[in-house]
Design a protein around this nucleic acid. Structure first.
Lengths: 233, 233
DNA sequence: CAGTGGTCTAGACCACGAT
DNA sequence: TCGTGGTCTAGACCACTGG
């Protein structure tokens, strides 16, 4: 005899795998599932959380639970930009610039970029979406001195292209660190997640030349929206 | 006014970050926390789940909650074996061979290895630990024809070394796919996790020569135990 | 406005781990 | 055997979304 939470999970997972529920379709409401399975919301929500962990469904704040579309395949080493990547996979990308500031920034960013004690950093915060669903909340830190007048430019497109065209930056290599983490507060809100939901976190340092770091990013991906692909030779 | 679950989370996160609770130390029991915060187990467990998602704590089945040690840094492209990797980071590794079988295997493995319809695969299932804590449950699929007598050998050490030494296999490249997934049943049990807990999943195809796939792995990592490091040039 | 999920109360029984 | 977490019952109120 399976526990009720697993039974509910299996039932919904079956519907999704048989495509009886299509991608981005809303699931029955929690209360409907409670009735259907003669169970309680605690148990139903437990089942839904499991499906969310697996990446089969996602939530949209207080609107309901939805079937996840296929994951975006992303090779961090390829340096293909977000727009191109999305379009190659028949998805519609969008970017919203949440904020741009001159600030001291977090210590991790200052260390990565090796800035002097009195120098400020430029912080860009962006929210990126696929087919209207927010999937990525990112913090970008740059050295002000290397990018004068940056904040007057269009910051919703590809930063790599902009850096190349307007500042003659050629990225020679980068260092990516990937782990499972959790989102809170404004990140959780923007991604329509609850506080403490798991996410895939990528921290990246980009270099021009052997030791000259020019960019530090922290990316928070909705975990069901992405699959990393790392070829190695 | 913060919700109670966040308040409890913040309190415990504070204890951990100030090292008032040391790595691998047990947290107060759920019922103790209920008393301390005049709350309920639902709320306390909600806070604990959030900390687990963040990787700050882990659970050991029905024994309690414990403070996570630092993550193992792992570069899949480096092909350093597990033992060496662990020892470089002052950790004590161990491997347990759970099972070895000749089976048809899952379709994903058969496709990856491009085996004939009637050929069986060798499946190895292993559990790997750091300092006594299980962190990785892996399924390994190999072509029987390429590895005769394999099942008579020591399968708890480095497979790469064994393949090289006894079968003259030289891995030329590999393809890694990384996503956040969830563990169930025997995987969850072995990792001391509950059904549906998130994990970091790595699927890997290893090649000798341009197109000759010799190994297909599915790794389930306890998500708080690992950080991937991907340098790119 | 009604309906949704987010949070919470105040308990209960069970399986399993440590001793 | 006792304490632990795992699962579950049967509700409640709130904040927010959409029509």
């Amino acid at each position: 005899m399976l526990p009720a939470n697993i039974e509910i999970r299996d039932y919904l997972a079956g519907l999704i795998k048989q495509s009886r529920l299509k991608q981005n379709e809303r699931l029955p409401s929690e209360r409907e599932l409670v009735e259907q399975f003669k169970s309680t919301r605690i148990t139903v929500r437990d089942a839904l959380s499991k499906l969310e962990s697996e990446g089969l469904i996602y939530r949209s704040n207080r609107r309901g639970w939805f079937v996840s579309p296929p994951r975006l395949e992303y090779d961090p080493s390829s340096r293909v930009n977000f727009y191109l990547l999305a379009e190659q996979q028949q998805r519609t990308p969008a970017t919203e610039l949440i904020s741009q500031k001159r600030i001291k920034g977090p210590q991790t960013a200052r260390t990565a970029l090796a800035v002097a004690a009195d120098e400020k950093l430029i912080e860009l915060v962006r929210l990126r979406s696929l087919d209207g669903r927010p999937v990525l909340y990112e913090f970008i830190y740059l050295q002000e001195s290397r990018f004068p007048e940056l904040m007057k430019k269009d910051l919703e497109g590809s930063l790599t292209t902009l850096m190349q065209r307007d500042y003659n930056v050629e990225i020679t290599h980068e260092d990516n660190r990937i782990c499972v983490s959790a989102v809170y507060d404004q990140v959780a809100d923007a991604l329509s997640h609850i506080n403490g939901a798991p996410c895939l976190e990528i921290r990246r340092i980009r270099y021009e030349g052997e030791r000259k770091a020019v960019e530090f990013d922290i990316e928070h991906w909705v975990h069901s929206a992405i699959e990393l692909r790392i070829p190695s030779h």
